[in-house]
Amino acid sequence: MLLLGDARLPTGGHTQSGGLEPALLAGMAAGDIPAYLTTRLRTTTLVDAATAVVALRTLRAGGAVELVEQAWAARTPSHVVRQASEELGRGYERLLTRLDDLTPRPVRRGEPRPIAVARLAARLDVAATDLARVICHDDVQSVCAAALKLAPLDPVDTVAWALDVAPLVERVVAQVADLRTPADIPAPAAPAAEIWQHAHATAPRRLFRA
């Protein structure tokens, strides 16, 4: 679990800003980043954490994750956002391939990040609550790390932000811990952030993929 939550895990996380770069390009003030984190945890991150938990249970039961993936996609309306998540998923798949000495399959499209991480969690015997916590932590830290590249900040400030949202992370973990079926995955929306991220595919000056 510690490995999965470590930014040094070589899965391409450094290319992502958790939607922060698009938000700042759209004019969101840097002072609003803590509020952005909270909003994200209540919406996008909640969907991802719930998806990961349901996928983990489905995988452990030997079921197919296609329906979980469809439920996730239905709650992630922008194809730009889905594509960024699927690229991250391919990074996790590369890692899993290495761990299991599998021949890499010629994937053209990865599974979304929450499902790819759930596969790793299944492989590494990570509990559902820990998986949900990892998904939240990774998301929070993607935003915080990107913030340092995008806004004038003292790095210790972002650590304080991450700690400030820790109680909310625990609430998200509790909320998704017992979910079992694709229909259980909540469907909150963050339309403004989604529109900003959708525009990122054609943004002229960007450091981050998404």
């Binding site: 040094r8 070589p10 899965t11 391409g12 996380g13 450094h14 290319t15 992502q16 800003s17 690229e87 391919r90 990074g91 590369r94 990107a146 590249k149 960007r206 450091l207 981050f208 993929r209």
Partner: peptide, 21 residues
């Protein structure tokens, strides 16, 4: 083109994921 999140060094060395893909 691959975006490197302002980490050009990382992208070719410590975490080659995006480039390898």
């Amino acid at each position: 083109a691959v975006e490197t999140g302002a980490c050009p060094h990382t992208a070719i060395r410590d975490d080659i994921t995006a480039n390898a893909i």
